[in-house]
Simulated assay, not measured.
Amino acid sequence: MNGRAIHGAAGVRPSSPSGRLTEVELVWREKQIEHWIRFGHAIHEQILDRRCRILSFPAGAVFAFVRWASNGFGTVVSRIDILRAVRAGDGYQTLPSVRPGGEILLQTSGWPSVERVLLLIDAIEALGIDPTEASPEYWRHVHNRLTAGDAPRSYSRQQHRAWRLRQRAEP
């Protein structure tokens, strides 16, 4: 699997106060179907077999889910979704392989757009910032710019600092 696919998986499933975890089913059949987590901190991993596993994320966790598939004629699916795991009672959008679903911060398909998002994630990591801690508004900005065919702005340390200060100021 991708060397950067998972960070922080634990072997024991904790009981969450809300009683709900967001589960993501990952499948890996080399050069056929490949689902992986580009960033995120799973708190549980369940291995179903050598090609399939389920990662669990607590409410509020942000993660990037990449889906790619091909057939004999080439790539048929190339997508990335950046999601926030929802709390019990929150509204959410459904996605294949994600139970129950999540709050979509960014959603794009087609390799050029997916590659652009992957490069933006790399740039955030190069700043020494964990992409799970980046401002949700930034991911929405990237989504909107890509949808409009415009280039998204880069994430900056100053933007990240402002986001962290806003979080502390909220009740």
Rank of each mutant, 00 (worst) to 15 (best):
R4P: 12
I6Y: 12
A9I: 10
A10P: 06
G11I: 11
V12D: 09
P14Q: 09
S15M: 13
L21Q: 04
T22Y: 01
E23C: 14
V24S: 05
E25H: 14
L26F: 10
R29W: 12
R29I: 15
E30L: 13
K31C: 12
Q32V: 15
I33V: 15
I33T: 14
W36S: 13
I37F: 05
F39G: 00
E45K: 12
R50K: 14
R51Y: 15
L55A: 03
F57R: 01
A59R: 05
V62P: 00
V62I: 07
F63L: 01
A64N: 01
V66D: 03
R67I: 04
G72Y: 06
G72P: 05
F73W: 09
V77F: 02
I80D: 01
D81T: 12
I82N: 02
I82F: 02
L83E: 00
L83H: 01
A85Q: 03
R87T: 13
A88V: 14
D90P: 07
Q93K: 14
Q93L: 15
Q93S: 15
Q93I: 09
V98N: 01
V98M: 04
R99G: 08
R99H: 14
E103K: 05
L105P: 02
Q107T: 15
G110R: 05
V114T: 04
E115R: 15
R116A: 14
L118F: 13
I121E: 02
I121M: 02
A123L: 12
I124Y: 00
I129K: 00
E133V: 14
H141C: 09
L146S: 02
T147L: 11
R153W: 08
R157S: 10
Q158G: 11
R164H: 05
L165G: 08
R168P: 03
A169K: 09
A169W: 07
A169C: 07
